[in-house]
């Protein structure tokens, strides 16, 4: 059971670093939402920075992979993403095609290289 709960410190960190910094924006939207221009420059900039941060996280998982993903060589990790991207574009932006193709390339490569 204690494995299921983990330690209380980590749950506290979840609240302080995860739940509160995230929910504050939903609450602000609920309270001060009316009369805000969705196309304003400030929101455009915020959206671009948020997208770039997400891109950074994607890159971080590929460059400094966690856990089992570290067992895949870097060439294969990047190759799988590039192959997935090609399938995504070739299939007129099907997320499903991109994900399946990327996974297949990674699994095939790993099986091939041993």
């Amino acid at each position: 059971m204690s494995d299921f709960i983990g330690d209380w410190h980590a749950l506290f960190v979840l609240l302080v670093a995860g739940v509160i910094p995230n929910q504050i924006w939903r609450l602000l939207g609920l309270w001060f939402g009316s009369g805000l221009d969705e196309g304003s420059d400030l929101l455009m900039w915020v959206k671009a920075v948020a997208t770039a941060i997400l891109a950074g996280v994607i890159a971080q998982i590929l460059v400094q992979p966690p856990g089992a993903l570290a067992s895949v060589t870097w060439g294969l990790r990047y190759g799988a993403v590039v192959a997935g991207l090609a399938a995504f574009l070739a299939s007129r932006r099907s997320i499903f095609a991109g994900v399946v193709c990327g996974e297949m390339v990674m699994l095939a490569g790993k099986w091939w290289l041993g």
Partner: peptide, 11 residues
């Protein structure tokens, strides 16, 4: 920073 985009979404 990543959650700011939720603000315009809720709005």
């Amino acid at each position: 920073m990543s959650a700011i985009r939720l603000f315009p979404m809720v709005v």
